[in-house]
Write a protein that binds this DNA or RNA. Structure first.
Length: 412
DNA sequence: GGTACACCTCATGT
DNA sequence: AACATGAGGTGTA
């Protein structure tokens, strides 16, 4: 049963300022599900949020539980952030906060482009990538799941956490949507064995330990206290965030250092939590992917036995901070996204179209090519041949072949 | 301090 | 069909 208030509203936003199709899929959040064509939904702050976007507007809808039950883990946004206008539940305030809509993104892109030729070259096809302001606890657990893992599996693991340990908020198309579980919910003794059974592998122990540590020892207030004071968990901050240095501001360095005490949290995961959950925009998480970018485009580690040591990690992060400044983590995320194979169609767009044309031409029977991104580096190509005359079974033959992206341009 | 190596699981390539 | 590799790493020796 759909809860209260499910009309669509809209907010004027250009695609250069926010592109949800990129931002919600680039691996900073693992919660968003496709609820319809060009529609993304997730349970957040005790409601189901859905988004669509066109060239001029972000369209949104909030569905609340039919019962006026107790609010979930996160506090209701303070009234100071309410832009008024029939927004008594402050969904608009939540959206402004979550999408981090305050900064002028086009201006930031210009700034990063001005100081970096590589950014200038790569960024134009990946405009509108915004750093989300996610809940710190959710970001922490999500990125603990990310070690030695890929986006599609991380997403399904996070989905499982919500499904088994998070409060049910509502349904869309009979699909249940759960909010993210609290630390307490994940601190119960059965969690580790259960997650193990759910296929979390060695991360089951990390999650169980970290949940207990936060729930019983450090407290959620400790985690939220690591936030950038200019960008607290919700609302507008007042306190200054400190002076920028090579290694980042003091608050960032402290947050990163404290997070390292948690099980399953190394430098990379800590930096992801800092950037995506705590509002420290200078945090530059260096994973194998960024390491490759640093080698390929910024001449790092070209030596013989170059490996991503701790020293190398810091050197790369510092280099990017010096290059792009206070929002280095943001700029880095744009380049990271540009390198994601799930988006590689944007790089090879022209080639793809040519291939299709050729294939259609060479098959006079009239065939349809449907490329869909199945996983990060593969696409599933369906060739659907249709009978010349229509009968009840239109699709006579469906061939599926899975091919590597990189090889495709040469194949055929 | 820097370097191997194991670690759960899943998908893909050989 | 078994085996290796890598996936947005971390903990340990």
């Amino acid at each position: 049963m759909a809860g209260r208030a499910s009309e669509w509203h809209k907010l004027p936003v250009s695609l250069k300022e926010l592109c949800i199709n990129t931002t919600l899929r680039c691996g900073q959040s693992f919660r968003w599900r496709k609820s319809a064509e060009d529609e993304w939904s997730a349970a957040l702050h005790g409601r189901i949020l859905s988004f669509r976007q066109d060239a001029s507007h972000l369209h949104y809808r909030a569905i609340f539980p039919s019962t006026n039950a107790t609010p979930t883990s996160l506090p209701t946004p303070p009234a100071s952030n309410v832009p008024s206008e029939s927004d008594d539940d402050n969904t608009l305030g939540l959206i402004n906060h979550y999408f981090n809509l305050e900064p002028n993104l086009a201006q930031l892109y210009d700034q990063w482009a001005a100081s970096d030729a590589n950014f200038r070259k790569k960024a134009p096809k990946f405009t509108g990538v915004r750093i989300l302001r996610q809940d710190p606890w959710e970001a922490l657990i999500g990125f603990i799941c990310s070690s030695n893992n890929n986006i599609s599996r991380i997403s399904s693991m996070v989905h499982n956490l919500c499904k088994h340990y998070g409060p049910l908020i509502g349904h869309i198309n009979d699909e249940p949507y759960h909010d993210f579980p609290t630390p307490e919910a994940l601190a119960v003794p059965e969690v580790e064995a259960h997650l193990m059974k759910l296929g979390f592998g060695y991360r089951a122990k990390y999650i169980a330990k970290t949940a207990r540590m936060v729930a019983e020892e450090k407290g959620l207030a400790w985690l939220e206290g690591l936030c950038n004071p200019e960008s607290p968990v919700f609302g507008k901050g007042t306190a200054p965030a400190g002076e920028m240095e090579d290694g980042g501001r003091e608050g960032y360095r402290k947050a990163q250092a404290e997070l390292l005490a948690l099980h399953g949290v190394g430098p990379k995961v800590a930096d992801c939590v800092c950037l995506f959950g705590l509002g420290w925009s200078e945090s530059v998480p260096v994973d194998t992917h960024v390491w490759q970018i640093a080698q390929r485009d910024y001449k790092f580690g070209k030596g013989k036995h170059a490996s991503l040591t701790q020293a190398m990690y810091v050197a790369i992060a510092n280099h990017f901070r010096k290059l792009w400044g206070k929002e280095a983590g943001w700029a880095h995320s744009v380049l990271f996204t540009a390198d994601l194979k799930a988006f590689s169609d944007r790089i090879t767009a022209k080639v793809e179209i040519k291939e299709e044309e050729v294939l259609v031409k060479t098959e006079p029977g009239g065939s349809l090519l449907v490329d869909e991104v199945v996983k990060k580096d593969t696409i599933k190509r369906k060739r659907v041949k249709k009978e010349p005359e229509a009968n009840e079974q239109q699709v006579v033959e469906i061939k599926e072949e899975v091919v590597r992206r990189s090889k495709r341009s040469r194949a055929r």
